[in-house]
Design a protein around this nucleic acid. Structure first.
Lengths: 72, 72
DNA sequence: AGTACTATCGTTAGTGA
DNA sequence: CTCACTAACGATAGTAC
């Protein structure tokens, strides 16, 4: 996406990695939340920034102990 | 995306939830892999399908014990 | 269940402040 | 670094098989 195609390989520029991380982290967190709501599923997403800062996403599903599969 | 806008709320149709889950699971797994490679980070993604089947993604980063932040 | 197609919407790379 | 903008690329809803 964006203005040009981006090859999927490690970004060599440090600040570039951080900027790309910030943008894509927001995108994937949104995707995870959408998926958990749309499909009513449990999801866990844990990631560490290029500087080591962790982000944890636990989805939006209301809690069900022992994660029983849906019957409906 | 897709042909029409989709409201982000629980899909009431069971098979629709499963189809949407399959498509979006593929999308988010690709995003997670791309993010881990581009930004050279650790990422963990765990999710359960509407029928309870788990999927685990551990990212593509080469292993670093104790997850040291990048120095460069 | 899974694959293929594709119009349409969503994400984001590059840019500037 | 963070925010806003937007052209252009990417993901996906609906469909057909």
């Amino acid at each position: 996406m964006g203005r040009v195609k981006l090859k999927i390989k490690r970004l060599e520029n440090t600040s570039g990695r951080q900027v790309t991380y910030s943008k894509r982290r927001a995108g994937i967190l949104k995707k995870a939340k959408e998926l958990s709501i749309l499909c009513d599923i449990d999801i866990v997403l844990l990631m560490f920034s290029p500087t080591g800062k962790p982000t944890l996403c636990l989805g939006e599903r209301r809690y069900h102990p022992f994660h029983p599969p849906l019957s409906s």
